[in-house]
Design a protein around this nucleic acid. Structure first.
Lengths: 137, 137
DNA sequence: AATTAAATACGAAACTTTTCGTAAAAAATT
DNA sequence: AATTTTTTACGAAAAGTTTCGTATTTAATT
């Protein structure tokens, strides 16, 4: 059972996905209002983008009512993972851990967050059965 | 002394920066050959991009010899930091540590890398004077 | 029922990024 | 010296993304 990967969302599409993830099922008007909290966006602009997103498989819509209701068709996690992979590749030439170090150094982290990360590392180290040596190609 | 920030490199420009960082001073032909190892790119395409990069301040060139020699005008670290900040904002809504966790989970890490990260975290925790509680806005 | 309001559909303009054709200049080769 | 090769310069086509104007449809209001 092959699953065709949906395309990477563009920046504007990602903004809309953020709204759909945060709010759940929403109308174009609702999404547009959230976007307009940050910057001015025309209603039909948002509408068009959301229609495109349906075509691409990034969003789904319920057309049973007059005012269509949209939902994200991709999860936040999957999207973040896909974008992260791409980003690590292009910007850090695949060196994910180098990026992790940069992020730790440049961004504010709370004690609890750091603890969480430490816990994750412990878990990774204990469950590490093979291929753990050296940096990958 | 204000320093005007150079613009974010586009994807194609970033590819070229990677080559310049890896190889150091290079001619258009050299860069183009490296790029062509991955995908077919016309010579004048690469030339044009590199010229644009000079205009933008991303690269510098020595025109004293007939065959111009280009170098990166921005460091890899600064560029990575800038792109990382933007990426965290747009894709993880600023939640850098959430991204760190994803990266740790999704990518292969060696023992030594994990140790390095742990050491960095220890260091961060010891040097943490304020603002450490809760997640940021 | 006529008018106003709200929503979708469609297409194209505007803008950004990438790609390349063609010309001109300079160097190397024959 | 003529020819071929290499390189840069320039401009514009091609492709991708974002924005919005206008028309149409459907619902709500008067």
């Amino acid at each position: 059972m092959e699953k065709k990967p949906w395309p990477r969302p563009t920046e504007a599409e990602l903004e809309i996905l953020q709204v759909l993830w945060a709010r759940g099922a929403s109308t174009v008007r609702e999404v547009n209002e959230v976007l307009n909290a940050n910057r001015e966006v025309g209603y039909t602009t948002t509408l068009k983008l959301m229609q495109i997103m349906v075509e691409k498989g990034l969003a789904a819509r319920d057309t049973s009512t007059r005012t269509h209701v949209y939902t994200a068709a991709v999860t936040e996690q999957d999207t973040q993972r896909q974008l992260l992979d791409k980003f690590v590749d292009t910007t850090f030439r695949g060196a994910a851990m180098k990026m992790v170090m940069q992020a730790l150094g440049n961004h504010q982290a709370s004690e609890s967050e750091l603890d969480e990360i430490k816990a994750l590392i412990e878990q990774l180290e204990s469950g590490q059965q093979s291929g753990g040596s050296g940096t990958e190609a």
